[in-house]
Design a protein around this nucleic acid. Sequence first.
DNA 1: CGGATGATTGAGAAGTCTCAACCGTGGTGG
DNA 2: CCACCACGGTTGAGACTTCTCAATCATCCG
Lengths: 252, 252
Amino acid sequence: MNHVTDGDFVSPPFRHFLARLLKHSELTSKEQEAILRLSGQVAHLAAGSDIVGPNTTIAHAHLVAQGIVARFDETKDGRRTVTSLFVPGDMCGLQSIECPMTSWGLSAFTACNVIYVPHDQLRTLIDLHPAIRRGLWTEMAIDASIQAKWTGNAFLKNSVARTAHIICELAVRMNSAGNANRTKFALKISQSSLAQSVGLTVIHMNRVLRELREKELVSTDSRMLVIKDWQGLSKLAEFDAAYLGLAGHFSS
Amino acid sequence: MNHVTDGDFVSPPFRHFLARLLKHSELTSKEQEAILRLSGQVAHLAAGSDIVGPNTTIAHAHLVAQGIVARFDETKDGRRTVTSLFVPGDMCGLQSIECPMTSWGLSAFTACNVIYVPHDQLRTLIDLHPAIRRGLWTEMAIDASIQAKWTGNAFLKNSVARTAHIICELAVRMNSAGNANRTKFALKISQSSLAQSVGLTVIHMNRVLRELREKELVSTDSRMLVIKDWQGLSKLAEFDAAYLGLAGHFSS
DNA sequence: CGGATGATTGAGAAGTCTCAACCGTGGTGG
DNA sequence: CCACCACGGTTGAGACTTCTCAATCATCCG
C-alpha cells in the first residue's frame, strides 16, 4: 500500500518548497539551486498510515509533496489527536535537525506523498548559506506561531468556531501553497479526521458541520468540504491570517 | 510599578541561560564567554503586567531572570488564555529573531524580572558560532515540543489531568532550571492564573484543586502549591518528561 | 449481493460554565 | 489600633456544551 520510489524526479516538490521560502526570504540564485539539489526518498502513503511514531529518533525531515500530513499526540491507551497539519510545500519537523528525538508522531492525514529529506543535507545547507538558515528559521517560527494559535483556540473557542477556524487556516495555507483558490476552497476530508484535529468526537463534528451548513457557510458534498461564504466563516472563527506569517498577502 | 534598570549586573541570568544551553549543546569556552557577554535592559514586572502585546514587531528576545512569564492569546472581546509558560533561564521568542512580528503576546505570569536581549546580539552570535546556533535551534525545538504537547493535552485530557500535567511540567522545568526540588516543588500562583493556563474558569479550577487535594496529590497553603505525591500526580497526568527535551535527566 | 466505511440522528450522562453568594486574609486609611 | 475594603478562595444551583452509547442510513467496492 505504501510505496517507496527512488528520489530522482522529485524536483517539483522542492520547487514548491523553494517558492515557500522565497515568500519571506531572499535567496541568491546559487542558494536557490542548492535548495533544488536537495533529494530524498519519496513515500506514497495511504490516508491514516503512520510516517513516524512518537518517541522515535529520526534522521530526516519530511517534505509534503501532495496531500496533508498530521502531527499527532496520543495517550497511553491509544487515543490520538492531531496537533498540527502540514500542507504541500511544508517541511515537517525542521526542529528535529538539532533535536532528532521526537515526542510527537506524523501520519498521513489524507493520502499523500512525502519526501524524506536527510538531516545531513539540510545541515550542510544551513552551514553554507546563512540566508537558507534564516529561511528555515522563519519556517520554524511560523510553525510555532500556528501551534500556539491552536493551543489558544482550544482554550478560547467552542467547537463551531474552532472548526471554522481550522477550515479557514487550511484554505489560506493551501491557497498560499498554490493548491486552491481561497474563495472556492475544497477539501476532501472525512469528518472523523476533522474531528481529531479540533479535539471533538466524530458525532459532535457531524453536528458542528450541520450547523455550518445551515448557516450557509460551507457545504459538504460527497466528502468534499467547500467554503461558501468566506466572510461569514472567517468572522465566526475570528480568523486573522497574521499568525500564518504570510506578511499580509492574505489580508482579506 | 514596572522598573527598568541598566544592564550592567545581569551576569547571573545569562549564566543561567548558558547552563541551560550546556544541557544539550557543547560549547567551547570562547562560545560560553560570548553568551555571558550578552546584555540587555532589565525590567522588573508586577504579576499580570504586559511585556509585549499581540501583533507587535519586536527587536528583542526576552530572557526570564526570575518568576514566570506567559505567552498568551486573546479574542477580540479581550478574553485571554495562556498558551505557554517560561521559567527562569528560558529565552522567550527566539523565533522572533527572523520573524519579528509576533502574533502572540507576553505577560508577567508571576512577578518577574525579564532581560530584553537585542536581536542584533543574538544574530551576531548565531552568525559567528555554529554551536550556539545549534543550541538556540534546540531551544526552539523544545519550545515547539512543549507547545505541541499543550495542544494535545487540551484535546485529550480532562481538567484534572491537564492541571496535574502542567504542575508536573513546571516542577520539572523549574527543577531543571535549578529553582526547585521536584519532590518538594512549591509554586506561588493564583488559581485564576492557573486556570488561564489550562483553559478553565477560576471556579472550575478551584474544584479541580480540591480534587487534587482530596487525593493527597498536592496541597495548597496560603497560595502556595506543593506537590505531595509526585508518583501519583504524574501518573494521573500521564506525564512523561521526554517532550521537555532533557534527554532522560528526569526519567523518574 | 454482502460488507465496510462514513454520515446521520436520538437520548441520556458527564463535564464545564455562569451566576450568585459568602468567607478569609492582608493591607490601608482614619 | 481598628474598621473597612479589595482580592482571592470556596461553595451551591442551574444551564449549556460535549460525550457516550445505540441505532439507522448511504455509498462504495469487491
